[in-house]
């Protein structure tokens, strides 16, 4: 009972995500940030150590409930880093920012900080920092969209898969000043592509909707593939909507660049845990693939409806975040900037 009260906030978040009340990653990110903000301002903690353990408990709780959902964990992980930084600057003990290699090698093990000292200004400075972080989250989508003109030229044919709010905004921004065509892959059986196509067409972008099977046929005339992603893995690979892997392969075949629009909170320090996808993927209801009306046939067949695809980093050309473009090989560096090394494995 006590536990329920302690974790009521994160339990609510989990259930909201499970019941698809929050389904786009931006909403999830904002909700998570607000959750932590409330925790800081109202929670029972004294030292930075207390606060960090509170957050870590929530992360653990969340991972055990929804291992596939990386965004909230990444947000909380980044906030841990903010707490550490604030603590450090509060005491001015550990020099500035990152330690040099020399310092790391010569450092005394006992020297490592346990964040247990009390720092009276910590709460207010954290809340300030979080407010700043929230603004960053909120403007991330627009920041990515404004880069559109650097990537889309006139009369291009752009292919995208399914629906991503970020991609939609990106394309719409470019459409204000340039004429181009978009081919939307419908991404059956979820058919997010249909909504995407209708939204794009409403803002007067010439849109073609194709079934998933026609990707290879169309690919040779496509100039760029622009997609969103669910998570960016530590090696620069992607966990994306199902079907993107074959799109990426087709693009690779024709040497067509694939751009991935990714907010910073999608960068996750996790690696692909096995080449067998079982640990990585989840399967949705097979009813969308083979309807229940198929009757007795259903007893005799296995029907799969996986939700994700793994796209290896060599198929990705570019990541575009609110800070600009980065190659997949640079993701590890971004990760070390986003998260403290001690928090990468939780």
């Amino acid at each position: 009972m006590l536990e329920m009260e302690l974790f009521s906030d994160v339990i609510k978040l989990i259930s909201d995500i499970r019941h698809s009340k929050l389904h786009n990653s931006y909403d999830i990110a904002i909700h998570t940030e607000e959750l932590v903000e409330r925790l800081i301002s109202e929670g029972k903690w004294k030292s930075a150590q207390d606060l960090m353990s509170l957050i870590k408990l929530r992360i653990a709780r969340f991972i055990s409930a929804l291992p596939q959902e990386a965004t909230p964990v990444n947000i909380m992980r980044h906030i841990l880093k903010i707490i550490r930084d604030e603590y450090d600057t509060g005491f001015k003990s550990k020099g500035e920012g990152h330690q040099s290699l020399h310092h790391l090698v010569t450092a005394n093990i006992n020297d490592s900080e346990d964040y247990s000292k009390l720092l009276p200004t910590l709460k207010s400075s954290l809340l300030n920092n979080l407010a700043e972080y929230k603004v960053e989250l909120e403007s991330s989508m627009d920041n990515i969209a404004t880069q559109a003109l650097e990537h889309i030229h006139a009369n291009e044919i752009i292919l995208t898969v399914g629906k991503s709010n970020t991609v939609e905004k990106f394309l719409k921004y470019a459409a204000k000043s340039r004429k181009f065509q978009v081919i939307v892959v419908e991404a059956a059986p979820r058919f997010h592509g249909h909504l995407m196509a209708s939204n794009l067409a409403k803002s007067n972008i010439q849109t073609t909707i194709i079934p998933d099977s026609a990707v290879f046929a169309m690919m040779s005339r496509v100039n760029k593939v622009i997609i969103g992603t669910h998570t960016v893995l530590a090696n620069g690979g992607l966990r994306t909507e199902c079907g993107v892997h074959m799109v990426a392969l087709a693009a690779k075949r024709y040497s067509i660049p694939i751009m991935v629009l990714a907010h910073m909170y999608k960068l996750s320090p996790m690696h692909l845990c096995s080449s067998e996808q079982d640990a990585f993927n989840i399967c949705a209801s097979p009813a969308d693939v083979l309807p229940y009306s198929s009757g007795p046939l259903l007893n005799k067949v296995h029907v799969y409806n996986p939700a994700f695809d793994y796209v290896p980093p060599e198929l990705v050309t570019l990541f575009i975040s609110h800070q600009g473009g980065n190659a997949p090989s640079y993701v590890y560096r971004l990760l070390s900037e986003l998260y403290h090394p001690d928090d990468q494995e939780l």
Partner: peptide
């Protein structure tokens, strides 16, 4: 195809093309 193969007692799995990398 599925219907006919099942009728011929062949063990089958069925999925859509976007999941082809999965299997």
């Amino acid at each position: 195809m599925l219907r006919r193969l099942v009728c011929a007692n062949i063990e089958c799995s069925y999925l859509l093309i976007n999941a082809v990398s999965f299997v």
